[in-house]
Design a protein around this nucleic acid. Structure first.
Lengths: 230, 230
DNA sequence: TCAAAACCTTAAAACATTCTTAAGGGAAAA
DNA sequence: TTTTCCCTTAAGAATGTTTTAAGGTTTTGA
């Protein structure tokens, strides 16, 4: 995330203009929308890292927009509002917003909160599952509820064992799993040395999800140790 | 996380008592500490999910404590302070705190923020990247989970034996390991005199991680004794 | 200063792990 | 019951790592 993209959603142009000055100065790329509907259409086209969302807007208000956004993607949402009552704050947070700032606000405070949110998301360098049972690795998505795997939107058919292995590795991105550990986690029985069944399954998975199974993008071999998904 | 544990750190007993009433009511398990040093010792013994930390405290203040906590484990930290200036907020956030509430505060707002933080952390259902698997020696970082070694951020490829030796030495920084001890720790078999295989491996590691293998910065030779990482 | 001891370097041979393929057995679905 | 799909096994090929061994260099201490 060299230059994070921030989407500002507010019907008051002055507020957006003000924020733009501060945020451009911090090196962010900015997108704007005047209401929730506009915001959603921007999100379809653009890759956004964080959203600043006003609660009070015409057409579709911020709370509704927030819920809709949460259904689709997961990214930090900071709510903005003229109402400063605590009930509003709580409402905002339980709709899935990640933070809340009440108007009138000090732009520096908002900048700090934006940084804080982005920092957290990059620190946990991890995909943001919109649904709990979704694992995403680049263009590969694994749904543990429906047992579906999609590559670039196309359906990939995996057998139960293949699925279990891929899920295991994807759930623990980065961690290397030895063949023995994989066997025990998936088969739930003791591993016998010189059993290459895990290896054959890995090969089958690669055949299905990798463009070039010889040079795998998703499941990497760590020589002498095991396999991992990066 | 059936019953999340929250650590409250504040020197004002009244504040902790007040929070305790609200948070117990939400079903959280509570731990208390009167200053940063106490907080750190609690963290060593207990499994904590979130920390509420006062900035102004005797002995070790909240900012210092926050930094120390971040070095060890990763969990949400919410800062609390009587100072309401924005600069403080920014300072708090850039030390790694995840959120900030200024005194006097509405307890309900704090409860909402705690929920928000915990929700995020469980949503990203991922092992929190704590530093257990990370060994750092200056610009060299060794991750035993991912089996990655990085020098100044660049990937270094080590073979299994090389990795094991480097990990051994890095785990016991400062301690000198004889060739015999290294052999037995890594190969897990008895060492034969006049076997220079460890030496060859040390050489290979140095080739990969040292700028000048003749004048090693990381793996030092202790003449007549063995090797060490300082 | 010199010899001995300790350590370093190199490259090729030996060894180990992982990959690939294909075939057979077994379980589940038609 | 038949068919289909999935899992396992095995063996040779490919790839990557470890060890060996020989000669070189540095350090130490007489």
């Amino acid at each position: 995330m060299a230059q994070p993209t921030i989407l500002l959603v507010d019907d008051e142009k002055e507020i957006i203009d003000l924020l733009e000055i501060y945020l451009k100065n911090e090196g962010y790329r900015l997108l704007r929308a005047g209401n929730g509907i506009e915001a959603l259409s921007v999100l379809q086209k653009e890759d956004v890292d964080l959203i600043v969302l006003d609660i009070m807007m015409p057409k579709m208000d911020g709370i509704e927009a927030c819920l809709k956004i949460r259904e689709q993607k997961h990214m930090p949402i900071i709510m903005l509002s003229a109402k400063s009552q605590d009930m509003d704050k709580i409402l905002g947070l339980s709709t899935g917003a990640d933070d809340y700032v009440s108007k009138p606000f000090n732009p520096l405070e908002l900048v700090a909160r934006i940084k804080s949110q982005l920092r957290r998301y990059t620190r946990l360098n991890v995909q943001r599952p919109n649904k709990e049972h979704e694992l995403e690795i680049d263009e590969l998505s694994i749904n543990t509820a429906t047992h579906e795997v999609k590559l670039d939107g196309r359906d990939i058919k995996l057998t139960p064992r293949e699925f279990a292995i891929l899920e295991l590795l994807a759930r623990h991105r980065g961690t290397v799993w030895s063949i023995e550990k994989i066997y025990e986690a998936v088969w739930k029985e003791a591993y016998f040395d010189s059993d290459n069944t895990v290896m054959v399954h890995i090969r089958k998975i690669r055949e299905k999800i990798e463009e070039n199974p010889r040079k795998p993008k998703f499941i990497k071999t760590v020589w002498g140790v095991g396999y991992k998904v990066e």
